[in-house]
Protein backbone atom coordinates (compact mmCIF):
# COMPACT_ATOMS: atom_id res chain seq x y z
CA UNK A 1 0.00 0.00 0.00
CA UNK A 2 1.53 3.21 1.17
CA UNK A 3 4.98 1.66 1.22
CA UNK A 4 5.02 1.47 -2.54
CA UNK A 5 6.51 4.91 -2.93
CA UNK A 6 8.98 4.55 -0.12
CA UNK A 7 10.51 1.23 -1.10
CA UNK A 8 12.80 2.48 -3.88
CA UNK A 9 14.35 4.96 -1.48
CA UNK A 10 15.04 2.23 1.07
CA UNK A 11 16.25 -0.04 -1.68
CA UNK A 12 18.84 2.50 -2.70
CA UNK A 13 20.05 2.86 0.79
CA UNK A 14 20.33 -0.82 1.46
CA UNK A 15 22.04 -1.36 -1.87
CA UNK A 16 24.64 1.29 -1.25
CA UNK A 17 25.33 0.06 2.24
CA UNK A 18 24.37 -3.53 1.71
CA UNK A 19 27.66 -5.25 2.31
CA UNK A 20 28.74 -3.13 5.24
CA UNK A 21 25.41 -3.65 6.95
CA UNK A 22 25.74 -7.37 6.73
CA UNK A 23 29.11 -7.00 8.31
CA UNK A 24 27.68 -4.76 10.96
CA UNK A 25 25.00 -7.21 11.86
CA UNK A 26 27.54 -9.88 12.32
CA UNK A 27 29.75 -7.62 14.35
CA UNK A 28 26.95 -6.46 16.64
CA UNK A 29 27.94 -8.92 19.29
CA UNK A 30 31.59 -7.96 19.17
CA UNK A 31 31.05 -4.26 19.69
CA UNK A 32 30.65 -1.05 17.78
CA UNK A 33 34.23 -0.49 16.89
CA UNK A 34 33.92 -1.57 13.28
CA UNK A 35 30.84 0.53 12.67
CA UNK A 36 32.63 3.87 12.78
CA UNK A 37 34.96 2.65 10.12
CA UNK A 38 32.21 2.12 7.59
CA UNK A 39 33.17 3.42 4.18
CA UNK A 40 30.84 5.78 2.44
CA UNK A 41 28.64 6.35 5.49
CA UNK A 42 30.34 9.12 7.41
CA UNK A 43 28.48 11.00 10.12
CA UNK A 44 25.13 9.38 9.60
CA UNK A 45 26.21 6.09 11.10
CA UNK A 46 26.78 7.16 14.65
CA UNK A 47 27.65 4.26 16.91
CA UNK A 48 24.41 4.06 18.96
CA UNK A 49 22.23 4.39 15.91
CA UNK A 50 24.23 1.79 14.10
CA UNK A 51 23.88 -0.58 16.98
CA UNK A 52 20.18 -0.01 17.21
CA UNK A 53 19.80 -0.66 13.54
CA UNK A 54 21.80 -3.81 13.80
CA UNK A 55 19.67 -5.15 16.62
CA UNK A 56 16.41 -4.12 15.06
CA UNK A 57 17.30 -5.85 11.83
CA UNK A 58 15.07 -5.27 8.82
CA UNK A 59 12.67 -2.95 10.66
CA UNK A 60 15.48 -0.57 11.39
CA UNK A 61 16.42 -0.28 7.75
CA UNK A 62 15.72 3.19 6.47
CA UNK A 63 15.11 4.86 9.81
CA UNK A 64 15.37 8.19 8.02
CA UNK A 65 12.42 7.23 5.86
CA UNK A 66 10.33 6.52 8.91
CA UNK A 67 11.38 9.78 10.51
CA UNK A 68 10.29 11.63 7.45
CA UNK A 69 7.03 9.79 7.31
CA UNK A 70 6.32 10.51 10.94
CA UNK A 71 7.23 14.16 10.51
CA UNK A 72 5.03 14.32 7.44
CA UNK A 73 2.27 12.55 9.28
CA UNK A 74 2.47 14.95 12.19
CA UNK A 75 2.46 17.97 9.92
CA UNK A 76 -0.58 16.48 8.25
CA UNK A 77 -2.23 15.85 11.61
CA UNK A 78 -1.50 19.41 12.66
CA UNK A 79 -3.04 20.83 9.51
CA UNK A 80 -6.09 18.64 9.90
CA UNK A 81 -6.67 19.44 13.54
CA UNK A 82 -6.32 23.17 13.11
CA UNK A 83 -8.49 23.21 9.99
CA UNK A 84 -5.78 24.74 7.80
CA UNK A 85 -6.61 22.96 4.60
CA UNK A 86 -8.61 23.85 1.53
CA UNK A 87 -11.62 22.32 -0.09
CA UNK A 88 -13.09 23.32 -3.41
CA UNK A 89 -16.66 24.43 -3.98
CA UNK A 90 -17.80 20.84 -4.36
CA UNK A 91 -16.31 19.98 -0.99
CA UNK A 92 -13.39 18.06 -2.54
CA UNK A 93 -10.59 17.70 -0.02
CA UNK A 94 -7.58 16.81 -2.14
CA UNK A 95 -5.20 16.32 0.75
CA UNK A 96 -7.50 14.00 2.65
CA UNK A 97 -8.26 12.04 -0.51
CA UNK A 98 -4.61 11.61 -1.45
CA UNK A 99 -3.27 10.80 1.96
CA UNK A 100 -6.03 8.93 3.73
CA UNK A 101 -8.89 7.79 1.50
CA UNK A 102 -6.63 6.56 -1.32
CA UNK A 103 -4.32 4.81 1.14
CA UNK A 104 -7.33 3.02 2.55
CA UNK A 105 -8.64 1.96 -0.84
CA UNK A 106 -5.26 0.99 -2.26
CA UNK A 107 -4.94 -2.39 -0.49
CA UNK A 108 -8.40 -3.34 -1.76
CA UNK A 109 -7.36 -2.21 -5.22
CA UNK A 110 -3.94 -3.87 -5.29
CA UNK A 111 -4.28 -6.91 -3.08
CA UNK A 112 -7.95 -7.82 -3.06
CA UNK A 113 -9.21 -7.15 -6.57
CA UNK A 114 -5.70 -7.03 -8.15
CA UNK A 115 -6.93 -4.47 -10.66
CA UNK A 116 -5.20 -4.46 -14.02
CA UNK A 117 -5.41 -1.17 -15.91
CA UNK A 118 -5.16 -0.89 -19.69
CA UNK A 119 -5.20 2.11 -21.95
CA UNK A 120 -4.61 4.73 -19.29
CA UNK A 121 -2.98 6.86 -22.00
CA UNK A 122 -6.44 7.41 -23.48
CA UNK A 123 -7.17 9.87 -20.69
CA UNK A 124 -5.76 13.23 -21.76
CA UNK A 125 -3.03 14.68 -19.58
CA UNK A 126 -4.66 18.07 -19.37
CA UNK A 127 -8.08 19.54 -19.94
CA UNK A 128 -11.43 18.04 -19.26
CA UNK A 129 -12.53 14.55 -20.22
CA UNK A 130 -15.63 12.53 -19.51
CA UNK A 131 -15.00 8.91 -18.62
CA UNK A 132 -18.10 6.82 -19.27
CA UNK A 133 -18.07 3.42 -17.68
CA UNK A 134 -20.28 0.43 -17.12
CA UNK A 135 -21.70 0.04 -13.64
CA UNK A 136 -22.07 -3.17 -11.71
CA UNK A 137 -21.52 -4.94 -8.46
CA UNK A 138 -24.50 -4.11 -6.22
CA UNK A 139 -22.34 -1.69 -4.23
CA UNK A 140 -20.54 1.05 -6.21
CA UNK A 141 -17.06 -0.32 -5.52
CA UNK A 142 -16.30 -0.08 -9.24
CA UNK A 143 -16.47 3.69 -9.03
CA UNK A 144 -14.01 3.79 -6.16
CA UNK A 145 -11.62 1.39 -7.89
CA UNK A 146 -11.86 3.48 -11.06
CA UNK A 147 -10.89 6.49 -9.01
CA UNK A 148 -7.83 4.71 -7.59
CA UNK A 149 -6.95 3.40 -11.04
CA UNK A 150 -6.87 6.88 -12.56
CA UNK A 151 -5.12 8.42 -9.58
CA UNK A 152 -2.36 5.81 -9.31
CA UNK A 153 -1.74 5.01 -12.95
CA UNK A 154 -2.08 8.21 -14.88
CA UNK A 155 1.32 9.77 -15.58
CA UNK A 156 -0.05 13.27 -14.96
CA UNK A 157 -1.55 12.17 -11.64
CA UNK A 158 -5.03 13.19 -12.61
CA UNK A 159 -7.88 13.05 -10.14
CA UNK A 160 -11.14 11.51 -11.17
CA UNK A 161 -14.26 13.36 -10.12
CA UNK A 162 -17.14 10.92 -10.01
CA UNK A 163 -20.77 11.76 -10.45
CA UNK A 164 -22.88 9.90 -7.93
CA UNK A 165 -26.57 9.20 -7.45
CA UNK A 166 -28.62 11.41 -5.17
CA UNK A 167 -28.99 8.52 -2.73
CA UNK A 168 -25.30 8.91 -1.92
CA UNK A 169 -25.89 12.47 -0.78
CA UNK A 170 -28.86 11.55 1.37
CA UNK A 171 -27.08 8.96 3.47
CA UNK A 172 -25.15 10.27 6.46
CA UNK A 173 -21.40 9.55 6.57
CA UNK A 174 -21.50 8.34 2.96
CA UNK A 175 -22.32 11.81 1.67
CA UNK A 176 -19.60 13.40 3.77
CA UNK A 177 -16.95 11.00 2.49
CA UNK A 178 -18.23 11.22 -1.07
CA UNK A 179 -18.00 15.01 -1.10
CA UNK A 180 -14.52 14.93 0.41
CA UNK A 181 -13.40 12.35 -2.13
CA UNK A 182 -14.47 14.72 -4.89
CA UNK A 183 -17.74 13.12 -5.93
CA UNK A 184 -20.71 15.24 -6.71
CA UNK A 185 -24.33 14.83 -7.69
CA UNK A 186 -24.92 13.43 -11.16
CA UNK A 187 -26.64 16.44 -12.67
CA UNK A 188 -25.86 18.42 -15.80
CA UNK A 189 -24.93 21.60 -13.88
CA UNK A 190 -22.28 19.97 -11.72
CA UNK A 191 -20.86 17.86 -14.53
CA UNK A 192 -20.55 20.81 -16.87
CA UNK A 193 -18.99 22.95 -14.19
CA UNK A 194 -16.34 20.33 -13.47
CA UNK A 195 -15.63 19.71 -17.14
CA UNK A 196 -15.24 23.41 -17.82
CA UNK A 197 -12.75 23.58 -14.99
CA UNK A 198 -10.73 20.97 -16.90
CA UNK A 199 -11.35 18.05 -14.57
CA UNK A 200 -11.59 14.39 -15.49
CA UNK A 201 -15.17 13.45 -14.69
CA UNK A 202 -16.36 9.89 -14.32
CA UNK A 203 -19.95 8.91 -14.97
CA UNK A 204 -21.83 5.64 -15.00
CA UNK A 205 -24.91 6.33 -17.07
CA UNK A 206 -26.55 3.00 -16.32
CA UNK A 207 -27.12 4.13 -12.75
CA UNK A 208 -29.15 1.88 -10.50
CA UNK A 209 -30.30 -0.17 -13.47
CA UNK A 210 -26.71 -1.27 -14.02
CA UNK A 211 -25.53 -1.70 -10.48
CA UNK A 212 -28.65 -3.46 -9.28
CA UNK A 213 -29.18 -5.88 -12.14
CA UNK A 214 -29.47 -9.58 -11.39
CA UNK A 215 -26.44 -11.84 -11.71
CA UNK A 216 -27.88 -13.55 -14.75
CA UNK A 217 -27.65 -10.34 -16.76
CA UNK A 218 -24.01 -9.70 -15.98
CA UNK A 219 -22.01 -7.77 -18.57
CA UNK A 220 -25.15 -6.82 -20.47
CA UNK A 221 -25.16 -3.05 -20.60
CA UNK A 222 -28.42 -1.47 -19.57
CA UNK A 223 -29.98 1.58 -21.15
CA UNK A 224 -27.74 4.65 -20.91
CA UNK A 225 -30.25 7.00 -19.37
CA UNK A 226 -31.34 9.72 -21.76
CA UNK A 227 -27.85 10.39 -22.98
CA UNK A 228 -27.51 13.49 -20.86
CA UNK A 229 -23.81 12.82 -20.46
CA UNK A 230 -23.26 13.20 -24.20
CA UNK A 231 -24.88 16.62 -24.38
CA UNK A 232 -22.91 17.72 -21.33
CA UNK A 233 -19.66 16.62 -22.95
CA UNK A 234 -20.68 18.33 -26.20
CA UNK A 235 -21.48 21.57 -24.46
CA UNK A 236 -18.17 21.50 -22.61
CA UNK A 237 -16.36 20.32 -25.76
CA UNK A 238 -14.47 17.55 -24.00
CA UNK A 239 -13.69 14.05 -25.31
CA UNK A 240 -15.62 11.04 -24.07
CA UNK A 241 -13.42 8.18 -22.90
CA UNK A 242 -15.33 4.88 -22.82
CA UNK A 243 -14.27 2.60 -20.02
CA UNK A 244 -15.02 -1.07 -19.43
CA UNK A 245 -14.68 -2.69 -16.04
CA UNK A 246 -14.53 -6.46 -15.86
CA UNK A 247 -14.68 -8.27 -12.54
CA UNK A 248 -17.01 -6.00 -10.64
CA UNK A 249 -20.07 -7.95 -11.74
CA UNK A 250 -19.13 -10.99 -9.71
CA UNK A 251 -18.25 -9.39 -6.38
CA UNK A 252 -21.81 -9.69 -5.09
CA UNK A 253 -23.74 -12.12 -7.28
CA UNK A 254 -27.24 -10.78 -6.84
CA UNK A 255 -29.63 -13.68 -7.08
CA UNK A 256 -32.65 -11.94 -5.64
CA UNK A 257 -34.07 -8.58 -4.84
CA UNK A 258 -36.19 -7.99 -1.75
CA UNK A 259 -38.31 -5.28 -3.30
CA UNK A 260 -40.64 -4.71 -0.36
CA UNK A 261 -37.75 -4.29 2.04
CA UNK A 262 -36.04 -1.99 -0.43
CA UNK A 263 -39.11 0.20 -0.70
CA UNK A 264 -39.40 0.22 3.07
CA UNK A 265 -35.81 1.42 3.46
CA UNK A 266 -36.02 3.82 0.55
CA UNK A 267 -33.34 2.06 -1.50
CA UNK A 268 -33.71 1.30 -5.21
CA UNK A 269 -33.09 -2.42 -4.56
CA UNK A 270 -32.17 -4.69 -1.70
CA UNK A 271 -29.75 -7.37 -2.86
CA UNK A 272 -29.91 -10.99 -1.89
CA UNK A 273 -26.71 -12.86 -2.69
CA UNK A 274 -25.68 -16.43 -1.80
CA UNK A 275 -24.07 -15.03 1.35
CA UNK A 276 -26.04 -11.87 2.14
CA UNK A 277 -28.02 -11.43 4.31
CA UNK A 278 -27.67 -15.04 5.47
CA UNK A 279 -24.18 -14.70 6.94
CA UNK A 280 -24.80 -11.24 8.31
CA UNK A 281 -21.92 -8.80 8.07
CA UNK A 282 -19.61 -11.57 6.84
CA UNK A 283 -21.91 -11.99 3.87
CA UNK A 284 -21.29 -8.36 2.94
CA UNK A 285 -17.68 -9.22 2.10
CA UNK A 286 -17.22 -8.98 -1.67
CA UNK A 287 -15.83 -11.97 -3.54
CA UNK A 288 -12.14 -11.50 -4.40
CA UNK A 289 -12.48 -11.38 -8.15
CA UNK A 290 -9.74 -10.29 -10.52
CA UNK A 291 -10.54 -6.97 -12.17
CA UNK A 292 -9.56 -5.40 -15.45
CA UNK A 293 -10.22 -1.76 -16.23
CA UNK A 294 -9.78 -0.83 -19.88
CA UNK A 295 -9.95 2.75 -21.09
CA UNK A 296 -10.90 2.94 -24.76
CA UNK A 297 -10.09 5.36 -27.56
CA UNK A 298 -11.44 8.81 -26.74
CA UNK A 299 -14.39 10.00 -28.82
CA UNK A 300 -13.88 13.68 -29.70
CA UNK A 301 -16.83 16.02 -29.34
CA UNK A 302 -15.31 19.33 -30.34
CA UNK A 303 -16.11 19.12 -34.05
CA UNK A 304 -19.82 19.74 -33.62
CA UNK A 305 -21.64 23.05 -33.93
CA UNK A 306 -23.06 24.80 -30.87
CA UNK A 307 -26.64 23.65 -31.34
CA UNK A 308 -25.56 20.00 -31.65
CA UNK A 309 -26.10 19.50 -27.92
CA UNK A 310 -29.83 20.02 -28.52
CA UNK A 311 -30.05 17.55 -31.43
CA UNK A 312 -31.69 14.36 -30.15
CA UNK A 313 -30.65 12.20 -33.11
CA UNK A 314 -27.01 13.09 -32.71
CA UNK A 315 -27.32 12.45 -28.98
CA UNK A 316 -28.74 8.98 -29.55
CA UNK A 317 -26.11 8.16 -32.15
CA UNK A 318 -23.24 9.22 -29.94
CA UNK A 319 -24.75 7.49 -26.92
CA UNK A 320 -25.05 4.30 -28.95
CA UNK A 321 -21.49 4.64 -30.20
CA UNK A 322 -20.16 4.93 -26.64
CA UNK A 323 -22.37 2.10 -25.46
CA UNK A 324 -21.36 -0.22 -28.29
CA UNK A 325 -17.70 0.48 -27.71
CA UNK A 326 -17.98 -0.32 -24.00
CA UNK A 327 -20.00 -3.47 -24.69
CA UNK A 328 -17.54 -4.73 -27.31
CA UNK A 329 -14.59 -4.11 -25.06
CA UNK A 330 -16.39 -5.97 -22.29
CA UNK A 331 -16.88 -9.02 -24.52
CA UNK A 332 -13.28 -8.88 -25.66
CA UNK A 333 -11.99 -8.70 -22.10
CA UNK A 334 -14.29 -11.53 -21.04
CA UNK A 335 -12.94 -13.76 -23.79
CA UNK A 336 -9.39 -13.00 -22.72
CA UNK A 337 -10.14 -13.63 -19.06
CA UNK A 338 -8.80 -16.93 -17.77
CA UNK A 339 -10.99 -17.18 -14.69
CA UNK A 340 -13.17 -15.00 -12.54
CA UNK A 341 -10.77 -15.10 -9.64
CA UNK A 342 -7.33 -15.15 -11.32
Amino acid sequence: MADAKVIPFDDDRSRSGGVPRAGRRRSAGRGTGSVSALPGQPAAALPPEGQEEAVAGPEGVGGGGWDRRIAGGLAFLRRRLTGEYDVDEFGYDEELTDQVLMSMLRPVYEKYFRVEVKGIENIPSDGGALIVSNHSGTLPLDGLMLQVAVHDNHPAGRHLRLLAADLVFMLPVVNELARKAGHTLACAEDAERLLRQGEVVGVMPEGFKGIGKPFGERYKLQRFGRGGFVSTALRAGVPIVPCSIVGAEEIYPMIGNAKTLARLLGFPYFPITPTFPWLGPLGALPLPTKWTIQFGEPIPTDGYPMEAAEDPMLMFNLTDQVREQIQHTLYKLLVQRRSVFF
Binding site: V6, R68, R69, A71, G72, G73, A75, L77, V100
Partner: peptide, 13 residues
Amino acid sequence: PGSSGDTHPTPSV
Protein backbone atom coordinates in the same frame (compact mmCIF):
# COMPACT_ATOMS: atom_id res chain seq x y z
CA PRO B 1 6.17 20.83 9.22
CA GLY B 2 5.26 20.91 5.58
CA SER B 3 8.11 18.71 4.42
CA SER B 4 5.69 15.88 3.85
CA GLY B 5 6.11 15.66 0.09
CA ASP B 6 4.71 12.39 -1.11
CA THR B 7 4.95 10.59 2.19
CA HIS B 8 1.87 8.94 3.52
CA PRO B 9 0.60 9.26 7.04
CA THR B 10 1.36 6.58 9.51
CA PRO B 11 -1.61 4.49 10.56
CA SER B 12 -1.82 6.25 13.92
CA VAL B 13 -2.62 9.50 12.18
